[in-house]
Computed example of a mutant assay.
Amino acid sequence: MDHRALLTDAASRPLDAARQVLDGLASGSLHAMPEGRGNSIAWLVWHAARQADVQLAALHGGAEVWADGWAHRTGIDRGEGDFGFGDGVAEVAALRVADPDALLGYAAAVTDALTTYVGSLAATDLDDVVDTNWTPHVTRGVRLISIIDDAVAHLGQAAYVRGLVDGWSIGY
Rank of each mutant, 00 (worst) to 15 (best):
Y117G: 03
R73S: 07
E80S: 05
G141L: 02
A108P: 08
G81H: 01
I147R: 00
D128M: 11
L104P: 04
V142S: 04
A108H: 05
H72A: 09
I41P: 01
L56K: 05
G28S: 04
S12H: 00
L95H: 10
A52Q: 15
G38P: 08
T135F: 00
T74W: 00
V118W: 08
W46T: 10
D101M: 03
N133R: 14
T139G: 06
A49T: 03
E80T: 03
D68C: 04
D99N: 06
H137A: 15
T115R: 07
Y106F: 09
G36S: 06
A90W: 05
V45T: 11
V118T: 09
W43K: 10
A109I: 04
A93N: 02
Y106H: 01
V45W: 03
A57H: 06
R19T: 11
A42F: 01
D131R: 14
D82Y: 00
D77T: 13
E80G: 00
V129I: 15
L104R: 13
R96C: 08
D131W: 08
L59R: 08
D125H: 06
P14E: 09
G119A: 06
I148N: 07
D23I: 03
L104E: 14
T115S: 04
A107M: 15
F85E: 15
I145H: 02
W46F: 14
G88N: 14
E35K: 14
A109D: 04
H72V: 12
A122G: 14
V21P: 07
H60W: 15
E35C: 12
S12M: 12
V110N: 04
D53C: 05
I145K: 07
A122D: 13
V54K: 15
P14A: 10
G81Y: 01
I148K: 08
L95F: 10
D149Q: 13
V21H: 07
L144N: 08
V45H: 06
G62W: 02
I145F: 03
G61W: 01
S146K: 09
D99A: 01
D16L: 15
E80A: 09
G24Q: 06
R50D: 02
Q20N: 09
A48W: 00
L59G: 06
V110Y: 01
H137Y: 14
A57N: 08
D128E: 14
A123K: 13
D77R: 11
A26Q: 14
G62F: 04
A90G: 07
D101A: 11
I41W: 01
A52S: 15
A48I: 05
R50G: 02
A90H: 12
H137E: 15
S29G: 13
A98H: 13
T111M: 08
R78C: 03
R73A: 09
